[in-house]
Structure formats: C-alpha cells, structure tokens
Amino acid sequence: MTWDLVANVLIAGLLTGMVYGLMALGLSVIFGVVRVVNFAHGEMMTIAMYAAVILFVGFRLDPFLAVLPVAAAFFVFGYWLQKGLINPFITRPEHSQFMLLVAVAIIMVNVLLMVFGPDARNLQVDYQLESFEIGRLLVDKARVYAAGVALLTAGALFGFFRFTLTGKAIRACADNHLGALVVGLNVKHLYALTFGIGSACVAVAGCMMVLLVDVTPNLGPAYTLLAFITVIVGGMGSMPGAIVGGILIGMSEALAGLLISPSAKSMFSFGLLILVLLLRPQGLLGKKP
C-alpha cells in the first residue's frame, strides 16, 4: 500500500462524504425545526436515486440537470407529507412518531420493489470514467462535480436561513415554538416548508449519489442509519455539523474499506457514532443542550 493510494482513497471518501453531508443536512434541518426524526429519510434518498435513473434512461437527462425537477417534486412531496400526515403527530410521543415514519418507509421500499424489482440499476454518463490528474492524484470527475453540487446546495441553504425572512422565521420556530405562535407566525406552514426543504436536500443528494453507486430498493434503511450517524456525529441541529459529519463518515468508510474490508466499513461508522455519543453527546459542532 502506497501513500498515493491512501491519499486517493481519502479524497474519494471526502468527496462522497460531502454528498452524505447534504443528505444528512436534510435530516438535520427537519429534526432541528420540526423535532421529528425522519425515519424514512434513506427511503426518500432511494426514491430520488430512482428518479434520476428514470429521467436519464427515459429522457437522456443528465443527473446534474435532473436535480432541478427532482428537487422541486420532492419539495412539494415533503411539504404535503408534513402538512397532511406528520403534523398531527408533532405532540405525540417519540415512539408514535417513529412508527408513523417506519410505516411510511415500509410502503416506500416496497413500492419501489414492486415497480423496479430487486435488481440494481445505474446510469452511465459520458464523463463517468474520466478523472482529473493533480500531480500523482487521480480524482473522478463525476465525484468532484457531485461534491460541488452538494456544497453549493448546502451553501444556498445556509444563505436561505441566514438572510431571507422566511428562513429567519423558520429559525425562530425552531428556537421557540410557543414564541413563534405568539408573534403570529404560521407554524404549520413553516414546518411543512422545512420538511419540503429537507426533502429537496435529499433529492439533490440522491441525484448525485446515483453517479457514485448502483441503486436497489432496499438501500433505504442503510441510508437512513447513515444519515442519523452523520447528524449525530456532526451535531444535531448544526448545519455545518452535518457536512463535517458527512465528510468524516465518508473518509472513515473509505479508510475502513481500504484497510480492513469493504464490508466492515459501516462498522467504522457505528464505532464512530458510539464514541461520539459517549464522549460528546451533542456532536462535534453541536451546542450543549
């Protein structure tokens, strides 16, 4: 094993990690504001991946363009999922919310299975096998672009929450639910908006991910867990934390795959999760509760 190899693998992990980070960002935003843990997050990611495959196979639409319609559709879907289904559960106990979203996840996985069958799907863009050469490093082009889009989306989201009125209103909801009600914010609408935004994040992440891995219907639970781990490692409710967590997980997975075996890679992530929960339960960038 050479240092070149390690560096190559680490950079690939870093770039993939940014896509993970965007997926986790969706979960983090939803949890931070609505206080509901979206147990169907990975399943939504899988749906987005299939959507990108269909658009590519059916309409020759490049995933980087498919991002726009898929994200828009997911935004609408997330908005109504929150408004129609999840909203009545906001005040119910955690296990009740959990079961609701598990039921949604079961339906999603199996509808995918019914429609697409159990076989893996993927798409082949022209630049899939091309790569950038920087000195002795070889970096896949598709991976670089995917990471770029993930960062761009995350940046747009930071901007939205920091500078727009709606973004500020949503943050107010997250900080003080009762206070937001008192000053006359339409909390129900803002929650739905947040769920829509979180879903759109997943959609973008899904369209990018399909450039990097094949998709099967049963990927969902694994991605859900991955998103949880990322968010907890980075810090629940911290937006930069989600990206940092994603990068860490991406790199540790890559390293584990290289040093031990690819099948042990998620063991590394879970180990990291257990460590973080014990040593810094609020996450690396999270604030103390």
Partner: peptide, 15 residues
C-alpha cells in the same frame, strides 16, 4: 404475485 405488494398493504394498515 408481485414482490413487495404484501408489505405495501401491511404498511398502509399499520399507518
């Protein structure tokens, strides 16, 4: 006989 259809029903009833 479509794989997954059973679980979809199951999920809906659960919901």
């Amino acid at each position: 006989e479509v794989p997954g259809i059973k679980q979809v029903f199951y999920g809906i009833v659960l919901l």
